[in-house]
Nucleic acid binder design. Structure first.
Lengths: 81, 81
DNA sequence: GACAATTTGTCCGTATGTATT
DNA sequence: CAATACATACGGACAAATTGT
């Protein structure tokens, strides 16, 4: 795992998700990988070890309206405002 | 502690803080009680038992710009936009 | 400068609840 | 009913910034 410059993990994850949305990789309505899968990925790429940290990032993006969560279903990219 | 209607603790805390700001009890620039003190208070009033839960609420209000946090100093009501 | 105390900030791991399929 | 996935809460650990001694 890379040595970390100090941007908190949750902020790095938010940046990554925002970048994917902005690039069109994850268009509006796209379903994100599950929290567990995201943890695997950000574990490899950033060194994150806990689902709580992934949740921290997603939670903030839900608050800001960039993502929409549906319990039991998944998390989706919000439609354009 | 009262039986809880289901609004999450963190949301109840956010509502309470917003109400105090709106009422003028906590005007812009006012320093909030420390996390530990807030935990005591919301422990009594709501049954909250963990500082993490208080943090959850404050964290969201920091994100939204309603509060401003300064490490080592305290958390303050943001100036009017 | 060094050190302790206080307070916010991040992260972890676990447990349990709730909604959908 | 079982499996999956998000949502909330807890409690502990440690880092970072500020203040005071």
């Amino acid at each position: 795992v890379p040595e970390r410059e100090f941007t908190p993990y949750y902020a790095q994850i938010m940046n990554d998700i925002r970048a994917r949305i902005a690039s069109g990789e994850w268009p509006p309505g796209h379903q994100l990988p599950s929290t567990a899968t995201l943890l695997d990925q950000y574990g490899e790429r950033l060194g994150v070890r806990s689902a709580s940290t992934v949740r921290e990032a997603i939670s903030r993006l839900l608050d800001s309206g960039e993502l929409r969560g549906h319990q039991g279903l998944g998390v989706f990219v919000a439609p354009q405002p």
